[in-house]
Each structure stands twice: as structure tokens, then as C-alpha cells.
């Protein structure tokens, strides 16, 4: 890869890349350089939501974020939803809610949905169904019809301490 060196902070770890071209997106670096293939490429146009990650706590499209523009930011991918140091195989509550709620079918949208849901759940109050529907409206799922996903996320929000 041609370009500049950059160090990205992903899931709490500083990860250097030797050379990133200006046009290279965060999604490409996550997948091809870091092997973090949880974020998916469904459209590369910002529409499908499969590539959603959080930057400084807010869900954004990694396919529309240029990697060089992400230096000094906190990036969290689906691989980082379980806090570092948790026992192997541990799941975040929202991951568990989706898995148990039959809300995962093909799973291709799931990482992006989890990231959007995770950001929603940082709010304290339990979420209403309509709040969850609005919060997930940037993540297309072609399998589920959304109902079980929305139920699972709403349930996870009630279970919050």
C-alpha cells in the first residue's frame, strides 16, 4: 500500500499501519490490515450499515471514513464490544440478547446492528420500541423483518442496571 503511516486506536489498542493511501477507508484498514473482519462491506456507499463502527462513541460508517482522518480517535468494532479482560467467550448483554432472541439469521448485518444498538444502549433509560426502530434505521437487515432485533435490543435496554 502506498501512502502515509498512521496509528489507529481500535478497541483500545494502538495499531500502526505502515502506509495508508489517502483514499483508503477505515473499513479497508480494519478488514485488510488488522484482520478485523467483523465490520462488513455491503455497499461501500454508506447505505447498508454493515460496516458501522463507533468513533468516539458515536456510530458512523467505516466505509465513508478515510483512515487518515481517523487518527487520534477511539474506534470500536464488533470485536471490541466485550471489554478487554473479560473471560474467553463472554458476550456483551446486547450480543446475548440478539443471539437468544432469534434475532440473528444470516448474520451479515449483525455486527453493524450491534454497534448501533450498543450506542443506543449507552442511554440510561429503557428504550421504547420506537426509539430502537429509529436508532437502528441506518442498518438494513434483509432477513429478519427487524422485529426480533428490535425486541432483543429493547429487552437488553430494560435489563440494564
Amino acid at each position: 500500500m502506498t501512502g502515509e503511516p498512521v496509528t489507529l486506536r481500535v478497541n483500545g489498542a494502538e495499531r500502526p499501519v505502515a502506509a495508508v493511501a489517502p483514499w483508503t477507508t477505515l473499513l479497508t484498514v480494519l478488514r485488510d490490515e488488522f484482520g478485523l473482519t467483523g465490520a462488513k462491506r455491503g455497499c461501500n456507499q454508506g447505505v447498508c450499515g454493515a460496516c458501522t463502527v463507533t468513533i468516539d462513541g458515536e456510530p458512523v460508517r467505516s466505509c465513508l471514513s478515510l483512515a487518515l482522518n481517523c487518527a487520534d480517535r477511539d474506534i470500536v468494532t464488533v470485536e471490541g464490544l466485550v471489554p478487554a479482560g473479560a473471560p474467553a467467550g463472554a458476550l456483551a448483554p446486547v450480543q446475548q440478547a440478539l443471539a437468544e432472541g432469534n434475532a440473528v439469521q444470516c448474520g451479515f448485518c449483525t455486527p453493524g446492528i450491534l454497534i448501533s444498538a450498543h450506542a443506543l444502549l449507552r442511554r440510561n433509560a429503557p428504550l421504547t420500541v420506537d426509539e430502537v426502530r429509529a436508532g437502528l434505521s441506518g442498518n438494513l437487515c434483509r432477513c429478519s423483518g427487524y422485529k426480533k432485533i428490535v425486541e432483543a435490543v429493547a429487552r437488553a435496554s430494560e435489563a440494564r442496571p
Binding site: R31, G38, G89, N102, V104, L114
Partner: peptide
């Protein structure tokens, strides 16, 4: 029984491998 998908854990952790991965 509404058993969760056998591959649900793999999918919610982002570890499931699709062709592009």
C-alpha cells in the same frame, strides 16, 4: 424448542467467516 442458532455466538462476536473474509 426455539433453540438459538447454533452459529449465533459466532455471528454476534463478528467471528463468522463469509466469503469476503
Amino acid at each position: 424448542a426455539s433453540l438459538p442458532r447454533l452459529d449465533a455466538r459466532e455471528k454476534v462476536t463478528g467471528r463468522a467467516q463469509y466469503i469476503a473474509d
